[in-house]
Amino acid sequence: MSQSVERQFAVADSIDAALSARRSGAAVLAGGTWMMRDPRRGHDLPDAVVVLSGLSGMTDIAIDPDEVVVGASVTHEALADALRGSAGFEGVVVAAEGAANPAIRRVATVGGNLCTPDFSAADLVPAFLAYGAMVELATPERTLILNMAEFLKQRRELLRTAILTRIHLRRDVAASAHARLPLRKAGDYPVAIVSVAVDGEGAIRIAVGSVEEQARRWTSLENALTRLPGLPASPERAAELAREHMDFSGRDGVEAEGWYRCQVLPALVRRAFACLPKLETRA
């Protein structure tokens, strides 16, 4: 069990201490459900880690009338429990309570899910992308607040020094849904994910995860759906448009080939639209 050089394990008592540990090369350790499997992927565990969960606000979920703020150390289970039954958050809740299995959801954090650039099948990434979440990062220079698309674009570079501290969810989403296709041979990871959110003005955002290396918005489908009269479209019509506007190149993997990931997308679009709470009947 011993290793030759003693590993550094720091529990940060301030964000500055955490940033300073990062500058000295420590990796953030959250729930460990991704990092602890590094040796199975042929990588060594980091020589130094820093734990953030003791920092103020990191495990809190603040629910205000205009905004929900989620600390980066909040677990999937806590996120689903806090938002279950709140209008507009349906997709985020399905993503948080559908990922992995109960024992993993109890420890795996929101921060860990968003800060793993090599993990294409992360559920919360497309759910937050569709929702329109903003990500707050502490960097050595300043606090940064970015939208999800910007964060994903710069994620690898930013995470060399930055720490994700909070997710901001404005409460202007009227309804959302999250449809995923897990496969046993993929270790129950989803091989394709579709998240949909409709805001109070009727604007639709659709995000796709696990199909390409990185989750992204399906803007061609969003535009086609926006041109339809009456929102949102029927599940069948949405699936037809998904077939017409297929612009993904699926990633090949041992768990599923790229063409398959793309082929199941219209069915996932149909399922997501079928799960979307009916706007006119909502309280």
């Binding site: 460990g32 602890m36 299995n101 109960p102 024992a103 993993i104 109890r106 420890v107 129950d188």
Partner: peptide
């Protein structure tokens, strides 16, 4: 890897996977 549950123990009364802890 957290998939099978054969290593499950309770930490502060909650079931968790000992292989990833």
């Amino acid at each position: 890897e957290g998939f099978c549950g054969a290593c499950t123990v309770q930490v502060d009364g909650e079931a968790q996977m000992a292989c990833l802890k």
